[in-house]
Every structure is written in C-alpha cells, then in structure tokens.
Amino acid sequence: MPSAVLFSKISRHFGAVRAIDDLDLEIAPGEFFAMLGPSGSGKTTCLRLIAGFEQPTSGHLEIFGETMEGVPPYRRNVNTVFQDYALFPHMNIAENVAYGLMIRGVGKAERLRAAGEALEMVQLPGYGARRPGQLSGGQRQRVALARALVNKPKVLLLDEPLGALDLKLREQMQEELKVLQRTLDITFVFVTHDQGEALSMADRVAVFSDGKIMQVGTPQDIYQKPRSRFVADFVGSSNVLPPDFVETLTGLSLWASLRPEAITITDQGGYEAQAISQSYLGGSTRLGLSLNGLRLNAVVPAGKPVPESGETVRIDWDRNALHLMEAS
C-alpha cells in the first residue's frame, strides 16, 4: 500500500525565503501525524502543499501513490480544517456542512441528511439551522470538522485547529479528535506549535525548524530521545547540558538533555545546587536551580517540601535519564 502522503526532496521558496527546504517525509495511511514547530518553521506551508494551496518550487509530492503536480485543490480528495474555521457566514450550519456535497451535485435531501449525520458525529445535532455567528468557538470548530469529514477525504488536514479554544475545551477536543480518527480510519495531518498537543494526540511527530524536519518519531522518541538541542528545547522544558559539563559526567564531549522530572532532591551524594525560583503548577512545583551557574529545571511532586530561594539543596539524577544527543 502506498504512503498516504509522500514528500520527496520538496522545496517551497517565497523569493529568498526558504519556507521548506529539500524536505523528505512519509506519512502512513491511517496515521495521526503531527507537524510541530515554532511559527515560521514551515509546518503550515507543508500542510498547504498537501492541500494544494501552494505548489512546490521543486520536488515531488504524492498522495496515496498519485502524483500531485499541477492538481488544483478542488480535485484533491483532501479536506482541511482551517485555523480560523473559515465557515461561510452567509450560510447556515447545515448548508456549510453540506457545501462540499452540494458542489458535487448531491441532491438536496440527501446532502442535508448527510450533513445532519456529520453534525451528530461532532455532537452538534439540531444545530443545522443556526448561523456561524451564533456559535461559540468550540462549536464552530466542530462544524469545520464536520464540513471536512462529510466529504470522506483520504487525508484530513488540521491547521492549528485547537489554537483558539480555552484549555478545558482544548483537552476535550483532543480526546474527541483521537476517537474520531480511530473510528473513521482517515489519515489526519495536524499542525501545531503546542508540544503537549502533539505528544498527546499523534502517532508520530515531525519537529520542524527553519523549513527542515529536525526529527520524526513517536511522541516517546521525541520526548525521551531528542536528537538535537533544538528538539530537546522545543519539546518540553528539557534541561540542555553543554558538552563541557557532560564530559565531566560521562567523559564524552556531547550535548545532552535531562528531563526536569528526572532530577530528584536527595539528602546525600549527587550535586550541590542553589534553589532560585519556584512556580506552583498544582500537581507539582517547577523548581529553578543553579548548579555552578548552570540553570536547571526540576519538578517537585505535590506533597514534597519545596526549597526556598537561596537555599542550598543536593540534587541527583539517574545516569540513564541523561540522553546524549548526536547533533548539537
């Protein structure tokens, strides 16, 4: 079976700006794939290339084995959930959801029935007669999802779909999206700058920076075994240790990453560090430490005493928790 999406040596340049530079990527059918990166890293351009809103400057793009050169968006069996939802304000919700079917010439009764089903699937039954302006952000997001899914696309693209929602709604939608993706068995490609979202939802994550993919892997891989400083830094508030310090620990002059939760406060052994800041997070407290001038973050679970600023504490970590990185 061919890949759902295949990028081979794709570049997309806007004048002198290389939004995407010589990129290779393969997304498997039925996969929930996240593109993670800061703004301007090329992840959205990647999505727009799949949707067909952009054409690659060079390289080759395939969707389910079919080459996409010169194929306009309206001929691609791919649908997008837009960041601003892009619901049509002059149509009601049912007409919005049924739009793709209407364009394809599906009869009115049939397409409104399908729209009603799609709205039920996103838990908005009976909302068909309302206008987009009457819905909340979360509801609009669901409508945008229904409008895309009603067309039964081969690939569903989601461009920061949860960005505008508040935390509680976002967590709820994350769950629902995962369930939907499993039941429908459609390939989801998801763009986000929120590492928590990427890790919790995706089967695999690609971390973007400056138009290049820094690392592709499962959330566990990306989180526990970052290949470079950028990935370690961007995915979670990892401590990045410089080569000279790592050399004193391991004898190897390499950059290394150390997860905050791996650092424990002990009574003896380990290293002496100064506590410098505390941020209460509810379930835990993030503790800022200075180890001979090196800034480290640690996590103190709830219930454990939190050192005051200026206090000297002994810290230690499991040697296996220290992850040496191949690239700098």
């Binding site: 949707a51 067909g52 306009p72 309206y74 649908n79 997008t80 739009y99 793709g100 364009i103 895309a148």
Partner: peptide
C-alpha cells in the same frame, strides 16, 4: 481556499 478545498471550481 475553503471553498476550493471542498471541491468548488
């Protein structure tokens, strides 16, 4: 773009 994405010429 959404219209085009949903299949409209």
């Amino acid at each position: 773009e959404a219209s085009s994405d949903l299949g409209a010429q």
